[in-house]
């Protein structure tokens, strides 16, 4: 476990275990995400990244262990619920395909409890940050957007809640390199604006470049937590993706 700041961490998992029936997805995971940090959780397919994202967002109650936000326990065994100030962009985006771009965004603010006037103000702001195709036709159904447009819309919808912490799961999945760059540029801008970013990624290249802390998961366990730079980080990455025997 690594504590990078003296202030209470934005999010912390303490001995979190989660099982899907007999399958162990997270095995005693302890990790702290400092306020204002850009943290990447890396690992191969099935490492437990999406489960950890859901648990840290309060959407999945852990089988055991505790999740804390700002120092307060918010989820523990059998108890969970969306955590105020934390927004999740889930794997696969889960946009409402039959709803328009504008309606998807509006629900991001409405779900977070923003007033009608405030939601409309945020809507204009977020729409201005989206690619031109979305800005020009906000009445278009989300299901008809390209993969890159959908990813930008999913981030925009999460931003509508004005989260203090943004958890984003596999943002580069299925996107062309130029679109991945756009997504990471936006995440960097949000980070510069003070939003804590927790990124779940399989593709390490971009994540490592933007992060100030890296966590590597392997079969539900934290095998590395620390700086994304240096020999120890490189060795952990190789071990986490290829296996101990590769070292």
């Amino acid at each position: 476990m690594l504590d990078m700041t003296s202030a209470p961490p934005a999010l912390a998992a303490e001995g979190v275990t989660h099982r899907y029936g007999g399958v162990l997805a997270l095995d005693g995971v302890s990790v702290q995400i400092g306020t204002g940090q850009f943290v990447s959780v890396l690992g191969s397919n099935g490492a437990g990244k999406s489960t950890l994202a859901m648990v840290l967002a309060g959407l999945l109650a852990p089988s055991s262990g505790t999740v804390r936000a700002g120092g307060h326990a918010v989820a523990s065994r059998g108890h969970g619920g969306p955590i105020a100030g934390v927004s999740l962009v889930p794997e696969g985006r889960r946009l409402f395909g039959q709803l328009s771009v504008r309606e998807n965004l509006l629900l991001g603010g409405f779900g977070a409890g923003a007033s009608g006037r405030e939601t409309r103000r945020r809507l204009d702001e977020v729409l201005a940050s989206l690619p031109k195709a979305l800005r020009d036709d906000p009445g278009r159904a989300a299901a008809t957007l390209s993969g890159g447009e959908q990813q930008m819309l999913a981030i925009g919808r999460a931003i509508m809640a004005q989260p203090r912490t943004l958890i984003i799961d596999e943002p580069s999945m299925g996107l062309a390199p130029v679109l991945i760059n756009q997504v990471y540029e936006w995440l960097s801008r949000l980070h510069a604006d003070g939003v804590t970013i927790l990124l779940m990624e399989q593709m390490a290249t971009h994540a490592v470049r933007h992060s100030d802390m890296m966590v590597i998961l392997d079969r539900g366990r934290v095998v590395y937590a620390g700086s994304p730079q240096g020999d120890a980080a490189s060795a952990a990455l190789i071990s986490g993706y290829i296996g101990e025997e590769a070292l």
Binding site: G108, F110, G111
Partner: peptide, 21 residues
């Protein structure tokens, strides 16, 4: 917004819950 949230909830209740609906 509540009416739009009702349509969203029918399409994907889990995603709706993720947004706090």
């Amino acid at each position: 917004p509540f009416g739009i949230a009702m349509r969203a909830s029918a399409e994907d209740p889990l995603a709706a819950r993720m947004l706090g609906l």
